[in-house]
Design a binder for these strands. Sequence first.
DNA 1: TGTACATCAGTGAACGCGCGTTCACTGATGTAC
DNA 2: TGTACATCAGTGAACGCGCGTTCACTGATGTAC
Lengths: 205, 205
Amino acid sequence: MAKRGYHHGNLRQALVEAALRLIEARGPMGFTLTEAAKQAGVTPAAVYRHFEGREDLIAEAARQGYEIFTDVMQFAYEKGQPSALAAFEATGRAYLAFARKYPGHYIAMFESGISVNRTPELAAIATRARAVLERAAEDLSQHIPPEKRPPASMFSAHIWAMSHGVVELFARNSPGTQSPFPPEDLLETGIGIYLRGLGLIPPDE
Amino acid sequence: MAKRGYHHGNLRQALVEAALRLIEARGPMGFTLTEAAKQAGVTPAAVYRHFEGREDLIAEAARQGYEIFTDVMQFAYEKGQPSALAAFEATGRAYLAFARKYPGHYIAMFESGISVNRTPELAAIATRARAVLERAAEDLSQHIPPEKRPPASMFSAHIWAMSHGVVELFARNSPGTQSPFPPEDLLETGIGIYLRGLGLIPPDE
DNA sequence: TGTACATCAGTGAACGCGCGTTCACTGATGTAC
DNA sequence: TGTACATCAGTGAACGCGCGTTCACTGATGTAC
């Protein structure tokens, strides 16, 4: 990815990747356009050939994150088929796996403060991501007797919240907020207990 | 709280309160020492009579947050006694109520990136806060048959994670991440289903 | 194959800005006598 | 009650810094003929 002469070749993507590295290392606000340009081996002014400015670069990083996120969730969902339960659990696991594997993207998406409604493309892909989890929840809710069935969008929100909470509180290296349990186990058992509460897993297993 | 002449009177606390207002309004990194000083009607240099610097001021805001947080949780816990279940549910509700009522403190505590181990006092009060929730979980776990009882610290972590996730994803005004349900309901139902999964609430109610 | 030219990605210098922090200072306050 | 003095909270000017952004430019690339 080194620059090859006066013209870089693929500066746009190199900038996004530098931004992701910086966001991961220094937090969403520690990221600077100047530093990203430097890491890409380029003058800060060059950034403006490809992005409108600092915010626009972060938004693109987030957009790419949602793209990967949606794929990962979609893949997990399909892999769990035809069992609605397996598909649902797989998407939960995929959430945490994504946060772990793409921390820069995750931060750009959920902690950078950029609105998901910033651009139509960003809004669209974020909606698609949410839709995957909601579909998994919808499938699963078919197995609950209608009269005691909560709205699917509600329990997909529960799972999303627990997953996000586990990531933020226990999967980051923020010292002092560590739990004695690996985040993966924490989420797995948490979702397990929750699904038992919905009557979707027999109480004795 | 206006300054009264050359000497302010209670500048230290005025700075903390200005910082909280700014953190709430502009995010953890949008906060600047200079602006906080200005809001307190004072030169930036005056801040250094009371704090070591910018980080130290944020840490104090977080410390005060933990202080309130602990009290709120403790009060909720006691109010729910002698029912372990009522006490536990009350602490869950208190978590969200705190996040709503003291958003500046909440952000300083959980989103500012300052480590809880920064100072001994901060570490101590944070530990106390965690202990309240864990005690509530411990009480509750007595009602679960020992052989199927998960560690109390585990399910206090589950509840903490879900609460935090609800706050971050649904209780902030970040446009686009809204859910169709009020955060309070979301957390209430989520905890309800979870506790049912633990066998602590009868499945038909 | 070679030359002229249009295109455009990246340069480098400059800008104005607000930041956190320092320093010698000064004005207000409170206390000793 | 009045004066001298120590204390110390806040001033104001200055610093060096890195930021995001602009601008006229220049060097590389690709295309037409």
